[in-house]
Amino acid sequence: MAVTVDNISMRYDSAEVFSGFSASFRDGAVSCLIGPSGCGKSTLLNILAGLAQPSEGSVSGLSGRSVSYAFQEPRLLPWKSVAGNVDFVLDRSLPASERSARVARWLDAVYLGDAASLWPSQLSGGMARRASLARTFAVEADVLLLDEPFSGIDMAVKRRMMESLKNLWTASGTTVIMVTHDVDEALAVGDEVFVLSRHPVQLLLQKDLTGDPTPLRSEILALL
């Protein structure tokens, strides 16, 4: 069952962020939402996460499924090591050995295997971002909500991460809803792109990513 927002409306202060907005994100696919900063992409993720309530409309397709969220900021606990931060969100009913194996596996996946015992205050911005991604992934949820997951990460690391994550997500059939302002990120990891405008948010374009992305890239850039 696809994750769907149906006819949602929401105001933030005096601005109308959503007015009868609808969208449906395919199951087991990576959906990338592109749009200008401050258009309401993060708010949409908050609505999907249940952290913000639309005044009208509904969300469906998430009940009974586990959801993990990479917030716009890393939100690490300064008093826990990198590994401790990843472990923090893991279900305590898992055996300790399983938890530490997961922490190690996902820290490796974001190239932070060597940084497990560091404090967050010792990390660069990009490393803190990757630590927070390891936390998000370690839950091994059915649905991932990712808010600008690759921003601030070094180009070389980012490219390797995007490639390996894309493979992992495809293999596990994870549903990923990812917000970005970077067209090339969306084209690199997305199965489907959604181009949004602001005030109120409108869906300008929704396209499957198959074949040569070059014409689509120009089409998206022309819309932004």
């Binding site: 952290l51 993990s68 969220y69 917030f71 939100r75 606990l77 923090f88 969100v89 839950v139």
Partner: peptide, 14 residues
């Protein structure tokens, strides 16, 4: 105490 950190912890059902 950072509200956003608290929100994160609540989200994960701590």
């Amino acid at each position: 105490v950072d509200e956003k950190t608290v929100e994160m912890a609540r989200f994960y059902g701590i």
